[in-house]
Design a protein around this nucleic acid. Structure first.
Lengths: 256, 256
DNA sequence: GCAAAAGTGTTGACTGTACACCCATGT
DNA sequence: ACATGGGTGTACAGTCAACACTTTTGC
């Protein structure tokens, strides 16, 4: 019976097909009440001048997730990523013809973060900016390089789904925040209207979703000043917050 | 404004780090009432003699999913995979040290299928057999090559989660089947007991989950002969079939 | 006072669970 | 007859959506 050990170090690497591995990052944020994603304009062929997800080759000794963080920082000039940022693996895209240069398998990541400063061009001088997801969807939407439109669709769906059964909606907000601000995140990401009172009850009924600060916002507009909250320790939402609209099933999501 | 076209064909491929891409397949089935996975015994270093998931290098012009099907067939001698088999991408594993030979990024797939014939050794003479998932879990479980133990854990959790909100439980059964057989799949995969009457009501209340044949099984054991069903067209289960046990949250799943 | 936004209370529909009960068959 | 597993009925508890209502602010 084997003890299941790696055995002696190999003498030489065996042959394998020439396939490149990249990471692509879909950074989602809510700016001015709109769900937005970060895109960079490509400076080189192929798809020169096209908008694309930030991404690039994985280094030989680099973990995939580290590569995602690195590319995000390099290509967008966003050096200080917010501590509350969330990043998870989305899916791997490997159609043989997705890159005209060669066979490229891309591991896509989704990130969610509060509104960020307007990104400076990255180290390789590409322009980076946020685009509203609305401007990409539909047949007349902005065209993206490679299969990035598909990745965006999958990633946005993943985010919509994650909001149902995790507390990640709060990752889109700077602390402190109000329950109305949190509700507007849900409404924008899902594209629906939610009953304020029922939303409030639901959020507060989940222990650790949000923590009350016991303070009120200084009234900026007419109406009663809202109470302020920060993110709690809970990560899972149980029972889930379901998106309305008939009683259709949630879209299938690819994921952890 | 760019029209977002790939542009002229590239002159030469640019340099990229030497990273190999493989697929690994976690085939789940229920044999003799036990949730089992298919493993192959490695014939070559590293981890010679260890049990591992079937898998191998992706060919240069091969789609990832095609590679998963090919490896499954090649390494297990299972040439005629059942039509009802389900296969989906699980997650990509790319820790820099997961393979001692070189940098290997592996795209893992999960498959679910009815009980299959005992696999013949694959084309490269490796032994293939099914192992009960129970025999792998826990600190005294079978040790697997590479990080395959982690992949198995993630994949089993994915399957448990999929049973909650999809009709995939029926993918484990040969048609026709009875509702009790379907219930036993759920009970085994989740490791719980379910109330037969409530399970029945739930399954039948989902349009298209199962289709009654209008026949009864020829009584093989004592008791009333059950009615027979085949899989329906529905893929999504709404509302979901929740696993019991307190009201704990479902484990987070990585997936579509 | 009035408008506006935050927050509370109440009700009815629906879902899931537990469990008592009936049905059809082998022995 | 009776044990065994299939299948039906029912009643209680929890959750959610709808919406009326109260509170606290700016103007």
């Amino acid at each position: 019976m084997s003890t299941c050990a790696p055995g002696p170090p190999p003498a030489a690497s065996q042959r394998h097909p020439a396939v490149a591995v990249t990471v692509d990052v879909l950074l989602l944020t809510v700016r001015n009440g709109r769900l937005c994603i970060l895109l960079v304009q490509r400076a080189n062929p192929p798809f020169e001048g096209c908008w694309a997800l930030p991404g690039g080759f994985v280094e030989v000794d680099e973990d995939l997730e580290d590569a995602a963080y690195r590319e995000l920082a390099e290509e967008t000039g966003l050096q200080d990523l917010p501590a509350s940022m969330y990043l998870e693996q989305l899916k791997t895209y490997g159609a043989p013809d997705r890159d005209p240069r060669m066979r490229v398998v891309s591991v896509a990541y989704v990130a969610m973060a509060p509104d960020l400063p307007v990104p400076r061009p990255g180290s390789d001088a590409r322009i980076a900016r946020f685009w509203a997801v609305n401007d990409l969807e539909g047949p007349d939407g902005l065209r993206l390089a490679f299969d990035h439109r598909l990745i965006v669709a999958d990633g946005v769906e993943r985010a919509r789904s994650k909001l149902e059964y995790t507390t990640l909606g709060a990752a889109f907000l700077e602390e402190p925040f109000t329950l109305t601000e949190l509700r507007r995140i849900y409404e924008e990401v899902w594209g629906v209207r939610l009953d304020p009172s029922n939303f409030r009850r639901k959020v507060l009924s989940i222990p650790g979703f949000v923590t009350p600060l016991g303070e009120q916002a200084t009234a900026s507009t007419s109406g009663r000043p809202p109470e302020l909250y920060r993110r709690g320790e809970a990560r899972i939402l149980w029972p889930p917050l379901k998106r309305p609209s008939g009683d259709e099933p949630p879209s299938p999501g690819e994921e952890d």
